[in-house]
Design a protein around this nucleic acid. Sequence first.
DNA 1: CATAATTGGACCGAAACAGTACTGTTTCCT
DNA 2: AGGAAACAGTACTGTTTCGGTCCAATTATG
Lengths: 153, 153
Amino acid sequence: MLKLSKLTDYAVVALVRLGQKDEVTTSPVLSRSTGIPEPTVAKVLKILATQGIVTSQRGARGGYRLARPLEEISIAAVIQAIDGPISLTTCVDGGDCDARSTCGLGGQWDMVNAAIRNALSAITLADMKNHTVIDRLDGLRPPSMPGGPAATA
Amino acid sequence: MLKLSKLTDYAVVALVRLGQKDEVTTSPVLSRSTGIPEPTVAKVLKILATQGIVTSQRGARGGYRLARPLEEISIAAVIQAIDGPISLTTCVDGGDCDARSTCGLGGQWDMVNAAIRNALSAITLADMKNHTVIDRLDGLRPPSMPGGPAATA
DNA sequence: CATAATTGGACCGAAACAGTACTGTTTCCT
DNA sequence: AGGAAACAGTACTGTTTCGGTCCAATTATG
């Protein structure tokens, strides 16, 4: 369905919440303030810690803290941290595409991937809080749609 | 992994192949010329037919034909035909997002969805054959990256 | 030094997906 | 008119991935 996992959704919510206070926060606290089930939010934070999105402090009085301010964390970074690399097809690099010869289109999907990555990299977590990104999104639209081909979508 | 289904990949390959000849083509022929297993390519074409991407001719000497030229079929249209609507989160419209109150960010995901849809609508199947889309993709990049926030991805 | 609190990593069940097979309907050719 | 070819629809099965849970490693505190 081209939808990202629910974990990623949780991650964004948790990260935005984390960005509101610049202090270490534990999983239980984050669970209560976001409504996300405690084990789940713990898992999400764990993954984000390994990816360097948040820093972790183990032991008593431990918790999590944003590694960077919200403005410097793109949606693409979060998605890549949780869901893995953004590559729409398996036959991008080193994939097991055995029909490469008959397929006709060599690696044209990379182009599509790049387009999506661009769109996702332009939106930061800070933008998810306020609506200030809309102006910038207008700039993302193609300057002219020759003949109006893609009007189907 | 934010990857689209393999069926969609097959669909693009089959459609591009269909666009090379303006004549009805059967599933077996398409299977041989693309390397996609016959039952699978048949399934894909069936779905595409119901979505109006291709037209079908039943009976002997039947087969499939593009409903529109490749230039007028966007990647987004194909993805939506196979994988369903492009909506990254379940809490977009009428979703079962029960944490809407504590979630903080209302429906900010719609913005992200729109960005992706834009990127995907700007690429047509014809672009998948030739590399001519690159110029237009440059236009998709945000005009200015203030402070370079999303440089992470 | 012992204890409690908290993260880190491994495990397991469930749901969605890809792929396949079968049956029915329609159309062309003989 | 009869048979063959090809699409249409449905149902089934194996696999993968996702979401969630549990136990072990680590550290501050008293």
